[in-house]
Simulated assay, not measured.
Amino acid sequence: MNNYVAIYDGIGEKFDQAISKASEREVEVNTFFHMLGDVNNKRVLDLACGHGFFARQMIERGADEVVGVDISSEMIKLAINDSLDVPNLQYHVHDVALMPHLGSFDLVSAVWLLCYADSEETLVQMLVNIHNSLLPGGRLIAYTSNPDFRLGICNFTRYGLTILSEEPIEGGFSCDAQFVTEPPVPFHFYRLSREVYERAIRRAGFSHFEWVVPMIPQKHLDEFGEAYWYDFQRNCDQVGLVCQK
């Protein structure tokens, strides 16, 4: 995971530019908060928090406390700077697969975290740490790379990112991609299989899990039209995942 420290330290403020201009971003946000549900009076651990967008949103929506964690110190600096006036919000720099116990939480959120697991064992390490961070009955709300995506059907450029290449690895694919910005912002991720995910979830001790199809807001269907979203709906590169302790 150390390679990601350099990558995201280097991206810094470009990351916000990259995601804010992608049409898939509103789908991601809409789906995430649908899965998350009511956060009023909840304690939330926000993993791969980046510059703190979701952490701040959850405080605004009534969470008692949010603890953000990211592997990139530069991302955490941005998050702290953008959250100076936000109460009950703190940030830490950790690799989730190796992070110490930070407390017990009602919810753990992980938007674009699990896709950085390069093997089933790394994924299990992440999920075990998440499971150990949850109170009984607590939930993990994740958004990750869709195991069912097939690059041979279509790419994802019109929605905000281009997958440049993918190489088979045990249990999935190792992928190089770039955000559609000027200049493009490169990154690397892993698309592990559905079987690997589900086996890792069970190994980590979760009692129940559910895959969630990304939900395109009606205003975006109206704005861009059904034809624009055709490839997104038939070969989506992202998916929601809810796991319960």
Rank of each mutant, 00 (worst) to 15 (best):
F53I: 08
G50I: 01
K42E: 04
V5Q: 15
Y8R: 10
D16Q: 09
F33G: 12
V27F: 08
N41C: 02
M35W: 01
H51R: 06
A63C: 08
A18M: 10
G37Q: 05
G12W: 04
F32S: 02
G12T: 07
D38A: 01
D46P: 03
N40Y: 09
R61D: 11
G62K: 11
S20R: 13
I11P: 07
L47T: 05
G52F: 05
G52Q: 02
E24P: 04
A55V: 01
A6I: 13
G10R: 08
G12Y: 04
A55P: 04
E60L: 14
V66Y: 01
L45E: 02
V27H: 10
H34M: 10
E28H: 03
V29W: 11
E28A: 03
E13P: 00
D64Y: 04
A63I: 01
V39F: 08
F53G: 00
E65T: 00
D16F: 00
D46G: 02
V67P: 01
K21C: 05
V27R: 08
A63L: 07
G62A: 07
V67M: 07
F33C: 06
M58H: 09
K42T: 04
R43L: 08
A18K: 06
V39Q: 07
A55F: 02
V67T: 05
F54T: 05
G52K: 00
S23P: 15
H51W: 10
M35G: 03
A22Q: 13
D16R: 04
D9P: 11
A63G: 06
L45W: 00
S23K: 14
G52L: 06
K21D: 10
D46H: 04
A48V: 03
G62R: 07
D46I: 01
V29D: 13
F15H: 11
V27G: 06
I11E: 05
V5S: 14
G62L: 08
A18G: 09
G68Q: 00
N30A: 12
E65D: 02
K42F: 01
Y8T: 09
A22S: 14
M58N: 07
F33A: 02
N2P: 08
F32A: 05
V27E: 14
V29L: 13
T31F: 08
G10E: 13
R43I: 00
A18L: 12
G68T: 01
R25A: 10
A6D: 15
N40L: 04
R61L: 12
N30E: 15
N2G: 11
D9K: 11
G12A: 12
A22N: 14
